[in-house]
């Protein structure tokens, strides 16, 4: 077999297993919605909020598991409650928003870890899978739930695109033109919570922030408009989550760290080589690039 065919075979062969097909489906969907929703977080400078919501879903997940309810629903409710409490502390006291986030998400996270550690002694539930992702272990039910969430998220973003663009760029101007910015903001929080919940099994709650922010940030260095950032970001997100899935399969890694290492590498490449913003590119930035080229170039004068 030629090397090319061997690579192709290495990619296709695992897909004969049903569990790999489920993993691939979830990787595709999560790669897309994380990048799209995460683009709003990035442009609104709310990256920390993504982190807060993702850490806050754990207790809801544990309680739902104990009650025999769909864990996605429990996790979603906990995520939304955490944003409400953060907002409440922030508006009703002199505590700043980032401090409120730090307090709330670590409290929720601690409660979640405590609950799951307690119940996992008697039940088939593995804390590590929620912390670091276990894409190869998704069930058919989780594929279905992820598909429902993905459809909901993408439909909402498509239908409210122009309003969300105005709001996220100029909230005051949008409010002054009569848009219900409070509702738009709440809608955005719900989208983020849904996306985090759908991504739990893929990247895990600790690292989901990376899949939310890095694809959009990578695309932002390459294209100038928000919808382009979302589309290119979705490509970056899908590439990362799918390659992370294969790394997880072949190297027996937790899927979260594998995916995050891929997407971080892509960001690093854009950071160095983006035609507009790349550290090694463009006028005035040429010196480092020329030096690097000089080092890499075969030294014709020497031989």
């Amino acid at each position: 077999m030629s090397p090319d065919l061997a690579v192709l075979n290495g990619l296709v062969e695992p897909l004969q297993y049903a569990f790999m097909q489920r993993s691939l489906a979830v990787a595709l969907m999560v790669g897309i919605i994380c990048s799209v929703v995460g683009s709003y977080l990035m442009v609104q400078r709310l990256a920390l909020l993504g982190d807060a919501i993702s850490h806050s879903v754990l207790p809801g997940l544990a309680i739902a598991f104990l009650l025999g309810v769909n864990i996605f629903i429990g996790a979603f409710i906990a995520g939304v409650i955490s944003t409400v409490i953060i907002g409440w502390i922030h508006t009703r006291s002199p505590i700043k928003e980032d401090a409120a986030m730090g307090i709330v998400f670590s409290a929720f996270f601690a409660l979640g870890i405590t609950l799951i550690t307690t119940i996992q002694k008697d039940n088939k539930i593995d804390l590590n899978h929620f912390l670091f992702g276990n894409i190869l272990g998704v069930t058919a039910g989780e594929v279905r739930d992820t598909a429902i969430i993905a459809a909901l998220v993408l439909l909402t973003v498509a239908l409210l695109y122009k309003e969300l663009l105005f709001y996220s760029f100029d909230p005051l101007g949008a409010q002054a033109s009569g848009l219900p910015t409070g509702l738009l903001n709440a809608g955005l929080m719900v989208l983020i919570a849904l996306t985090v919940v759908a991504s739990m099994k893929v990247v895990g709650v600790i690292l989901v922030l990376s899949l939310l922010i890095a694809p959009g940030a990578t695309a932002y260095l390459l294209v100038p408009r928000l919808h382009q950032v979302m589309l290119l970001g979705a490509g970056v997100g899908v590439f990362s989550s799918v390659s992370g899935m294969y790394l997880s399969y072949y190297l027996n890694l937790p899927s979260g760290p594998a995916i995050v290492m891929v997407v971080s590498t892509l960001f690093a490449l854009a950071f160095l080589f983006s035609p507009r913003y790349g550290v090694l590119m463009g006028p005035g930035r040429g010196r480092a690039w020329q030096k690097l080229q000089a080092i890499l170039r075969p030294k014709d004068g020497v031989s």
């Binding site: 442009v43 663009l165 105005f166 760029f169 100038p224 408009r225 382009q228 950032v229």
Partner: peptide, 11 residues
């Protein structure tokens, strides 16, 4: 913010 002149005017 990733927006063009046209994006802003259309807002």
């Amino acid at each position: 913010f990733p927006a063009t002149v046209w994006d802003v005017v259309m807002m």
